[in-house]
Design a protein around this nucleic acid. Structure first.
Lengths: 211, 211
DNA sequence: TAGATTGTTAATCGATTAACAATC
DNA sequence: TAGATTGTTAATCGATTAACAATC
């Protein structure tokens, strides 16, 4: 209500980056059209679901007998997700995981620049894969100057809440948290938990299946 | 149908590791009882949901006026998730991310031993954080000897499907895939996609919210 | 006892699936 | 044209929320 926009379900929104990744893969192979059935098969979801999702974001309808135009769809999804305006992100905690993520280049495909990492320990300061690692006290300055809204939190468990508080203070509103702790944040800040151990445990649970 | 077990919803099962993590945190602080309201507040979910979830796995009911016994609950969830029998896991791909995960110790809390990493490049062979990195051709032998059923795939995108095929060949049935590619696997093998870029992109989507 | 908290049934909500007409 | 594929409405399914009685 209120907003005149056609409401797009949360589940649909969350699948969009996956479609985008898939479509970019196909585009790279020179594929021009994809059918909902093909997408569904490759991604392991239902064809009707794919059609429904794509219908919501696609600027032009799919063509019967052909399917959807890959390039067009990529543009539509990018526009839908707001990737035309880039998002700057920082990493807090330059341990093994933080450094691995800092060196990773896949974020660029989703309109995200990971501009730097920060660490409380001076020993970690330097650069990884061409990207800088700064001491923690430079965060307010750099975050403000680059309009950073997103942080990836990869500090040890014990440092997580304190680091989170600092992050929030500099105006960051979205946190991808790898520390195995629940964070207390003010309203308006979104936290997404990404506990590798929990992911793996959940996978084992799924695959055991019949309990 | 068929199974006489009370069906526990998939959503509930997938939340169990999170409860477990939370409860262990509380137990560490010396907390003996938790109320559903407290759990709900800290974890950011609904109290009724918590009660419903816990009722399904708890061996003894919560006590009105007190709540649930933390230690008992931890045992019940561990039993429910099958953590009494340990699961052995391996990492395929000893790049930055693979090594970071190899060094991580949080898996032990979920009944998972990460016993080793494997890499196609001889340069990567050695050890990280006390755990061995073997050449890829040792995988069949070691996986068989340790009854490995779970693999964490952290190879580059281009190597993912080939590595996946090898993994499947040695009898692994659950794969946590960090490579940004959809994997083709035979029936009976479960894949869980853990694309950091997609997670981050989805987070940005959520926090932008009103679209 | 009084009151906080649980457990459970019923109602709502949302998302997925099924069915089928529309279209190139 | 014939047929593959889309788009959409209706039906199903599952999970969450609301309401309230049961209990220590």
């Amino acid at each position: 209500m209120g907003s005149a926009e056609n409401a797009v379900s949360k589940a649909t929104v969350s699948r969009m980056p996956s479609y985008l990744r898939y479509l970019k893969g196909e585009a790279g192979k020179g594929v021009q059209y994809v059918s909902s059935a093909a997408v569904a098969k490759d991604m392991g979801i239902s064809a009707v679901g794919v059609r429904k999702d794509l219908a919501l974001v696609s600027s032009r309808p799919g063509k019967p007998r052909f399917g959807f135009e890959v390039q067009q769809l990529i543009e539509d999804i990018e526009k839908f997700l707001g990737y035309h305006r880039w998002t700057n992100a920082v990493i807090i905690g330059a341990g093994g995981l933080g450094r691995a993520i800092l060196a990773y280049e896949g974020f660029e495909n989703y309109g995200i620049h990971v501009i730097a990492a920060f660490d409380a320990s001076p020993a970690k300061v330097g650069a990884v894969g061409g990207r800088p690692v700064y001491p923690m006290d430079r965060l307010p300055d750099i975050a403000a100057r680059n309009g950073v809204r997103v942080a990836i939190l990869t500090v040890p468990r014990s440092a997580a809440q304190a680091a989170c508080d600092e992050i929030v203070k500099v105006g960051i509103t979205a946190i991808l948290n790898f520390a195995p702790v629940y964070l207390h944040v003010p309203d308006g800040v979104t936290v997404r938990y990404e506990d590798l151990a929990v992911s793996l445990a959940a996978l084992c649970g799924e695959s055991t299946e019949n309990r």
